[in-house]
Design a protein around this nucleic acid. Structure first.
Lengths: 220, 220
DNA sequence: ACACGAACTTAACTCTGAGTTAAAAAACTA
DNA sequence: TAGTTTTTTAACTCAGAGTTAAGTTCGTGT
């Protein structure tokens, strides 16, 4: 009967995860339709067809719930970098242009996988308020994941320089700049977005221009 | 005696301005030391040595007060662009590199003139919540000022292309990219900043790298 | 069939902070 | 001195975050 207990525990875990996913889904809808400040926990509870105390059983604060929405993007982003790192190690890149293109492709894929999450990530890093208000474990998960992605990206650029794919320069500065470009562009697009303009197509074309620009600047 | 009234009205205006400045100064201190969310209006009132209702006589909401902090940067930034536009019109730029350098110089000067304001501008554009919560006139002042700066920048780049200083490309995309870089870099620096690391020197060196990079990419 | 326990709901509650109000007090003007 | 404007005081409303406790549901073990 030990096996039986295992199975039951697993199902319970699954149900718990589903509950959490349900809350996150509802939270996403509410947050992105009205913005963080105007969204209330009661509203999210209603959207999730659940009672408010139940939400608080899984998320300690409103901030924590909001922040949890950005983890998917960070993870997807990291895995894209890992993919690129592998290709780099096995010498799959003919020139710097191909490498830079792949970085942008990775970003686009992450964005496609979780466009909302990036928006959260943006506003997250802004309001250092939010960060400090988090529970320790959540803050740790997010900031360590973010740091990991960051380190990964820098290492990637460094390696590409060693392989003669990119012009030599300070890898720290370069990774900051690339990251800043990507971050900044999505933001500028966001702040231009209105109800009646589809910003998505424009985001893509701007990213393409940025890609060309970066190739011209650093690819060898 | 009409003259007398004039003088009095002027003095009153001055006093009003001083009051507003005092509030802004206090607000800046409080907001930047604790973050937007954790700052309370009572606290700001206390810091400004003034009563809460008095603050509300000059600023309709907490958001409006916060947003008002960013106007100085936008204005300084705009005036830097106007300076560059004049130089461009009188053919003062020998090559694209000189032009790009001047853009960055303009940004740095604006930043120096009002470093905090930029930080507000950053977080401002994040939380579209904030924008929508503003009073009509404030929102108008800020967004129209921002739009004006934006248009100015784009026109600048366009003209520089016509003069053969820059490589031909979509000026809209380029101005978005440049703006995104500047915005993004200060943000990335901000989120890296901690109590014990001075981020200022690093910001400057990163901006210098970005400048070089942009020169390599678009200057002719 | 029945009792136990975990997770959930309900409904009422506390508490903080934004924004308001009205009356009293200053400060200034004529 | 009388009148006007601005500021303060102190009490207030209101919304929303987060909590509490008593009761409900339901799967599980005996």
């Amino acid at each position: 009967m030990q096996r039986h207990r295992e199975i039951i525990r697993e199902r319970k875990q699954r149900e718990k995860d589903q509950r959490i996913q349900g809350i996150l889904k509802a939270a996403k809808e509410v947050f992105f339709s009205k913005g963080y400040m105007k969204s209330t926990m009661d509203e999210i509870a209603y959207a999730a067809q659940i009672s408010k105390p139940t939400i608080y059983q899984y998320f300690r604060t409103k901030d924590e719930l909001y922040s949890a929405l950005m983890l998917p993007f960070l993870e997807e982003f990291g895995s894209q970098f890992e993919r690129i790192a592998k290709k780099l190690d096995t010498g799959k890149y003919a020139d710097g242009t191909a490498f830079v293109r792949d970085i942008f492709k990775g970003f686009k894929r992450s964005y496609d996988a979780a466009p909302d999450s990036l928006r959260v990530a943006n506003s997250f890093f802004q309001q250092s308020d939010l960060i400090s208000a988090l529970g320790d474990d959540t803050r740790l998960a997010i900031s360590s994941r973010g740091r990991y992605d960051f380190e990964l990206a820098r290492g990637l650029l460094e390696k590409a320089m060693e392989q003669g794919l990119l012009r030599r320069m300070d890898p720290y500065a370069l990774s900051d700049i690339v990251w800043a470009m990507l971050l900044g562009i999505t933001q500028v697009m966001d702040m231009k977005a209105t109800r009646h303009t589809r910003t998505d197509r424009y985001l893509r074309s701007t990213l393409r221009e940025a890609e060309k620009l970066l190739c011209a600047a650093i690819a060898l």
